[in-house]
């Protein structure tokens, strides 16, 4: 029992001490929904699996040092941008970056995971495929309060995907 507690403590503490406030309840109709890209734009779905390791660390994704949004455990968000090369980064005690070629009317996927660091866990961005994203049974949208420019809001996702939301979202 003691070992189990120590292991959980180690897994969470690796990420640091601050717990991000990510308690946005996604309407059930929008769980794992990825809409088609708005006309002429490319979409990137950023997601983070529901792993306990480094749970206290948030994946805060930026482009050109401008924050796009952040994700807690088991969350995702959808970013729309002009076609072309885009470099996205996350940083903690070290910076990690992934560059994508966005194509008009296409969707790409980027995962975020926490690697072991020296003092704290390190967020790591990696190119992923739709199957990797769908391999996560339940991912919720990240909190719209953390959305920067270009991130699709839940109501925009619903409109583009043609989904009718009957359950109002709630934030705790």
């Amino acid at each position: 029992m003691r070992l189990k507690h120590l292991a959980i403590f180690a897994a969470v503490a690796v990420g640091g001490l601050s717990v991000p406030a990510m308690a946005y309840d996604t309407p059930p109709e929008l769980m794992m929904v990825v809409p088609p890209a708005p006309k002429g734009k490319g979409l990137v779905v950023f997601y983070r699996s529901a792993s306990i390791f480094g749970a206290a660390i948030s994946c805060a994704v930026s482009e050109n040092d401008k924050k796009i949004s952040s994700m807690g455990v088991g969350r995702y968000f959808v970013y729309a941008a002009e076609p072309g090369k885009h470099s996205f980064s996350v940083s903690s005690e070290a910076k990690d970056q992934v560059t994508l070629e966005l194509e008009a009317d296409e969707v790409q996927y980027v995962g975020c995971r926490i690697k072991m660091g020296i003092m704290a866990g390190r967020p790591d961005l990696f190119p992923a495929k739709e199957a990797d994203f769908r391999g996560n049974k339940k991912l919720s949208l990240s909190d719209p309060k953390s959305y920067g420019e270009g991130v699709l809001k839940p109501e925009e996702i619903a409109t583009l995907a043609g989904v009718t939301v009957t359950t109002p979202a709630a934030a705790h």
Binding site: A7, A10, A11, M116, D124, F126
Partner: peptide, 19 residues
């Protein structure tokens, strides 16, 4: 992507941190 060893490393890390 190459084969990730992050999960293995994390398991080792968690197990060894507890012991």
């Amino acid at each position: 992507n190459g084969k990730s060893s992050i999960k293995d490393v994390n398991r080792i890390m968690i197990a060894s941190a507890a012991t």
